[in-house]
Structure formats: structure tokens, C-alpha cells
Design a protein around this nucleic acid. Sequence first.
DNA 1: ACATGGATGGAAACCGGTTCCCGAAACGGA
DNA 2: TCCGTTTCGGGAACCGGTTTCCATCCATGT
Lengths: 351, 351
Amino acid sequence: MTRKSEDAGRSTIRDVASRAGVSASTVSRVLGGVYPVSSATRTRVMRAVRELDYVADARAKAVAGVGTPTLAFVLEDITGPSFALMAHGVEREATRLGHLCLVCSTEGDVRHELEFVEMMRAQRAAAVILVGGAADTAEYRERTRRMADSLASAGSRLVLCGRPTLGPGAPVTVIEYDNEGGAYALVAHVLAQGHRRVLFLGGKADHTTAQGRERGYLAAHRARGLEPEPELLLHGDFTRDSGHRLMRGALKDGLDFTAVVAATDMVAAGALTALHEAGLEVPRDVSLAGYDDIPFARDLHPALTTVHVPYEELGRLAVRTALGRTAEAPDEHLLLGTHVVVRDSVAATGS
Amino acid sequence: MTRKSEDAGRSTIRDVASRAGVSASTVSRVLGGVYPVSSATRTRVMRAVRELDYVADARAKAVAGVGTPTLAFVLEDITGPSFALMAHGVEREATRLGHLCLVCSTEGDVRHELEFVEMMRAQRAAAVILVGGAADTAEYRERTRRMADSLASAGSRLVLCGRPTLGPGAPVTVIEYDNEGGAYALVAHVLAQGHRRVLFLGGKADHTTAQGRERGYLAAHRARGLEPEPELLLHGDFTRDSGHRLMRGALKDGLDFTAVVAATDMVAAGALTALHEAGLEVPRDVSLAGYDDIPFARDLHPALTTVHVPYEELGRLAVRTALGRTAEAPDEHLLLGTHVVVRDSVAATGS
DNA sequence: ACATGGATGGAAACCGGTTCCCGAAACGGA
DNA sequence: TCCGTTTCGGGAACCGGTTTCCATCCATGT
């Protein structure tokens, strides 16, 4: 086995230097670019680099202050279509701006989240983007506030996406999309079709995203002078299974309704299946609407009427504002609009 | 504004040391854990650490040889449900094994892929997992082979998931799932229902995953002594839109078929919508089957008969084999089985 | 022929950690 | 009381890069 020379592990800049018969500084300068190096030495160095298949250690460069900046994206579960879309946006924009992108799923575990943020601080990440609603408790605020301060003092930045805002003065960038407004518009559309008993398949009662959508549901009713029955407000989570279970329960309980509004498209998908299983046809027997406008929504049958949320754009925006923040620009708070996408799952009532 | 003291940026281990009145080595030892340190100094150091909110720089630790290992996951698009599932598995297993996990979408661009792998080599990633089929050309083999060698010589490891194998002797771990077998079983099931003209909505003609599934389609026919009509083999890609377009085209062309097998569930979803738009009912008028068993498959109407691929498990396995590889264990090649999931979208023909 | 200065490239300090090597203090036993 | 062991902690080298500072060398201008 007469291998060329060094196959045992990575080679250092000094290996390259000695092979090219120059000093380490010279190699660094050749690779660095701008410093004047005679073309003869440059050639020798480049040949050595090629022969050794040398790549400078990124960590060492980073510690010397010339590394590739990094950015972290923390979400609950990459499997959810809407957050996957957002992850895509984050990732694209991050690489476009020359940043590396770390992702981490917390599986909904707060300890996990804390750990990860700490880790990112140690990595000297340029920004940490936290996404997904949460319960807006005092404990949450304090914990998140601590993260924000801690990151800020390390020259980094916390970005909250669709998460409860902290008090004023926290060094945080907040980017939200309008849950209440979207739900309002959607439910108004449903009501305009003549529906009066609209079942709401909500999320966790203390989850801010769920709350926002629920508020929109209520507000739309009240704007028409209607007071929705409390029994039509159901709570679960944002999964497909939750929608399925809730819907089946509602059917079994004999709840009286002519339309269903689900807190997310995933929930709507589960609900739709449950309706089908019960022999009901949408929208002939029952109307159904979702929220998020995930790509799959239009492949459900009937195509789902829903609220479009610009998730990918949201991700890109999060990165841009986090990275492009200047000393003059204060802590930003952006609110992105949403709009109803009318498809085939909501029909007018006969009445 | 009487801030405590140092809010201007990260503090170093020497800051902590001087504040605690000890040397940097001592701080390192206290934080490191096992070295004997008197409890008095330990307390002083810990207090300084707390007051400064100090976290050791992970990059510096890494260069000193005690860093958190990293692992990279490279895919085409995180938005695809099947690969998102896999990413989830990878990410879970990576953090379980104490690794950081970088993800990168290549957007199908080979240059992007190359660049990223190079970057990961610079980061001294413990392993790079490349996922998704590709065209199995000589150029592909050489390029990938180079990546593998280059990573291996840096002490890292290339893992190919559902990708064309390289020749023997390449320092690569390959994990595949059985595309041909799954498609064979699925199409056999469709044929067993009496269908004789089965439309195949395939992927790119040179894409190995697509080819495998197509081979299964053909093999299942031939096992029954049937020779499928070439005109029933359509090619597109693995997106929802491709399925929609292909299906609409087939309908417009007046192709004669009683069942449709799509190369992925996404394609099937698009096809289903096209069928609905044409006023056809599944499975009464046409039977339909997919491949991948993405979570959404059972929420389509009718629930989609498909082939289950253990994507999440695949991701976990990729990480485990990549990291757990010992010097004795040679380059591994794993093939995971798949199985048909019978739901409601395939029915027997009347004939 | 000699001073001048730009082009090159080496030595050493630095980035922020860890760890080896050693000396000093404290402690125990004879 | 004296000596041998621990226990503890500081100094310095090291990890793999970059960059500052400085010493040459060679080509000019006069």
C-alpha cells in the first residue's frame, strides 16, 4: 500500500508550508488572497494545497476572527409542513447571506430549548430564531427574557417568530403574522355564506397562536352581532390526529353545526377524514375551512378554503432583520399580513 | 445607565480568571470538572462565571480538541414531506448522540452540493449525509467518489441515503430502501384487483429512485406475463404539480387506463386533484396508488393506498451507522424493506 | 556607485480555549 | 520536628489558523 504520503487525517497549514518550502504565513496569505505574493511561490503553494487536499479548519479560522458566521433555527418539529416551509426560507436566506444554518427540533421540551440556545451562544451564533407559539406565562417571559439578554450580551440576537412578545426593552426582534386578523376574515367569509353555527377546532387553550385565531373567530361573530355558543369551541392541538379526534367526538356528541373552522390545515385534514368516515360530504353537508395554506391544502377533496400565511417569506424576513439590524435600528416588531384563499370547501347554506 | 460592568460583548476565560483572582487554567479546570480544585476556589470561580454570564467559546474548544462534534445533512428541499421526516430522524438521533446537526438544501444544484460538502470538511464534521436520488452518470460517480475520499482522508465519513452506490472500495456508507421491491408489491396488488391498463406517473428518467420504482412496475407486470404499453409510462418529477400536469395531459390525450400508480404520494396528490377536476371519482372510475406513505396520505379522499417507507427510521439509522462505524466494520451497505399499505384508493375492476 | 523604496516572506504574537509540567503549601506519619 | 505525600494552582506550550511587524532583496533614480 504505497499511498502518496499523508492519508492519516487532516493536514495543517504547516504541512502545506513545509511541503511548499515556505512559511505558514505565506500559505495563509496565498489562500487569503490580497497580500502580494510572487506568482512563483503562489504556484508552489497551490500545488502543495492540491496534493494534500488541504482545507483550512473552519473552527480555527473562526477563533481567529475570520470564520463563516452561523445562525440557528429552533422549532418544535421540522415535520410540520408550515414550519418546514419556514425552515426552507430561513435556510435559503442564511446561505444567501453566507451564513451556516443549524436547525434543532425541541420536541416541545423547554429544557431542550434552553440547552440549545445556550449551545448557540457558545457557538457565537449571529442570531437564534425561535419559532412557534407558546403559553404566555410569567415563567415564559422571564425565561425568554433571560435568553434574549444573554444572547445580546454575547453580541448575538434573539428572534421570535410567531411567539409571544416580551415586555418593552427586551433586546429581541419579533416577527409575527396576523392570526387574529386572518381568522377574522376567514370566519367572516364563512358567516357571509349564511352559516350560523360554526364549530371551531382550536389548539391548546394557552397557546398564543391558537388564542389569536380563536379571538378572530369570536370577533367575527360579534361584528355580526352573534354570540357563538361556548360548546362550539373545542380545544386540542395542531396535529392531524387532534382534528380527527375532535371531529369524531363532535359528531358522536351530536353537536349541531353547519360549518367547521379548524385552527390549522393539519387539523382540518384530520377533521375532513373524520367527516368522510361519518358519511358526510363537504361542502354539501358541512363546510370546512383551515388555516396556514400548506401546499397540500388544495389537494384535499374538496380543495380547502384557508388562510394563506407567507411562511417562507417569514423565514427569509426573520434572517434578514436579524442579520441586517444596525445599531441605529431599534428592536423591530414586524407584523405580516395574511389573506383568505377561497377554494371549494365552504359553500353557502341552503337557508 | 450604571450597568454592572462588562456588557460589551462576550467575556473570555481570562476575564473570569482575573475576576475570581485565579489563573485561566484553574477556571478551565473548574469548568472541566474532574481535576482537584478546592471548594473555596471553585465557589469563587463559579460566582465569577455567573456574574459574567460566561460561556466557553465552542469553536475555541473545538480547535483545542474537546468540541461538540458536528454532523451535516444535505438534501434537495426540506419542504418535501418524506425528506422532512428523514431530517427529523437525523436530527433527533444526532442530538441524542450529542452531535450538532447542520442542514443544507441544495435546491438540486450540484455546485451547491459540492460547496457544502467542502464546507463541512472544513468544519471537520464527523459525517455528511447526502440524501435523495440522482442521475447515475459517470460524472456523478467520479464527483461523489472524490467527495468520499476527501472526507475520509479528513477523518470524516460520507453517507449516501437512497443514492446510487459507488463502485466497491469507496469509503462510503450506503443506506437504501427497496424501491423496486416496494413498487413491485404495490403494482402486483393493483394487478391482482383485475386492472390491466395501469398508468405509471414516474419521475425523471435518469433518476435512480424513479428508475427503481419503474423497474418494480415493469417487473410486476412481467411476472404476470403482461407487457405494459410504453405509452402508459409517463415521466415528470416528484412534485405535486408534476402529478397534476401529467394526469391532466393523460386525460386530455384520451389515454386508456383503469388505474394510476404514482411514483410518490405527492405526485399522487396532484393526480388525484386532476382526476377530481375531470369529474372522475376514485376508486369508482379510476384506481390510484402512491409511494412513500407520507402522513398526509390517509387524509386524501379516498385515503391513499401506498408503500410505506420508514423515512424517520432511515434517518436515525444513517446517523447511527455513520457515527458508530468502527475500524473493524467495513463499509456498510444497508437495504431497508418497505411494505404496501392498503387503504381505499384502489378497487377491483368490474370486469 | 549609492541612497531609496516597493515587493516578498519569515518570526512572533494573538484568537480563546485545554493540558502538561512543575513548584508550593498542607497534611499525615514516624 | 522532620520528611514524604498529596492536593492545589500557576506558567507555558499547544490546537490551527491570521496578522502585525520587520528584515531582506532587487530595481530604480541621480
